[in-house]
């Protein structure tokens, strides 16, 4: 873990000259290079860059490998950046949760649709990316239909406003697009 934090510090230009040389050595190992890629990927996600994909880092690595490497360390900053580093590590964990959460949501949404129709399962579960968009749009209309329905249902009338929980329940997360 300590080694990894130093790679993170290297990215942030926070190492002394001696430490810097040591880290560059570390980057030459397979594990070190993997950490380097991972930290950059996390940085990209945090900045909202959407270019990342599984092969993206490797492609960039391949392109860089064919060029001479120029290493120009940033000027040494004042000590006391440890907090920033921990914050970065914490933010990276949050990013991990956010990504996992997003996929879980997508699966949940896709699963919600196929209760009991006559279609074969293959058509029920379209690719995740497009189904999210499609269902998000569909839910917008469905949400509106549900709200209109609340106003005409005698059962809903017995519940008063509480029946509206159906229209805003967690199932229509994608509602509103």
């Amino acid at each position: 873990m300590v080694e990894r934090e130093r790679i993170s510090a290297l990215m942030d230009g926070e190492l002394t000259d001696d430490e810097f040389a040591g880290r560059i050595q570390q980057l030459r190992t397979e594990e070190g290079a993997e950490d380097w890629r991972t930290y950059h990927l996390i940085g990209d996600v945090l900045r909202g860059d959407s270019m990342f994909s599984s092969g993206f880092a490797q492609k960039v690595q391949a392109a860089l490998a064919s060029e001479p490497t120029v290493l120009a360390p940033a000027p040494l900053r004042k000590p006391g950046h440890a907090f920033q580093r921990y914050a970065m590590a914490a933010a990276a964990s949050v990013a991990g949760i956010a990504v996992v959460g997003w996929f879980a949501l997508v699966n949940h949404e896709a699963g919600k649709v196929d209760v009991a129709d006559g279609n074969p399962p293959a058509t029920v579960a379209p690719p995740v990316a497009s189904s999210r968009a499609a269902i998000a749009q569909g839910d917008g209309a469905v949400g509106e239909y549900l709200r209109a329905h609340q106003e005409v249902s005698p059962t809903a009338e017995l519940h008063g406003l509480a029946a509206y929980i159906r229209t805003v329940s967690t199932q229509d997360d994608a509602d509103g697009q």
Binding site: K112, D114, V115, A134, Q137, G138, A141, V142, S169
Partner: peptide, 12 residues
């Protein structure tokens, strides 16, 4: 109504 799933049953 683009994007609404056809012939599907949704339960809420």
């Amino acid at each position: 109504t683009k994007g609404m799933p056809d012939g599907r049953l949704i339960q809420q």
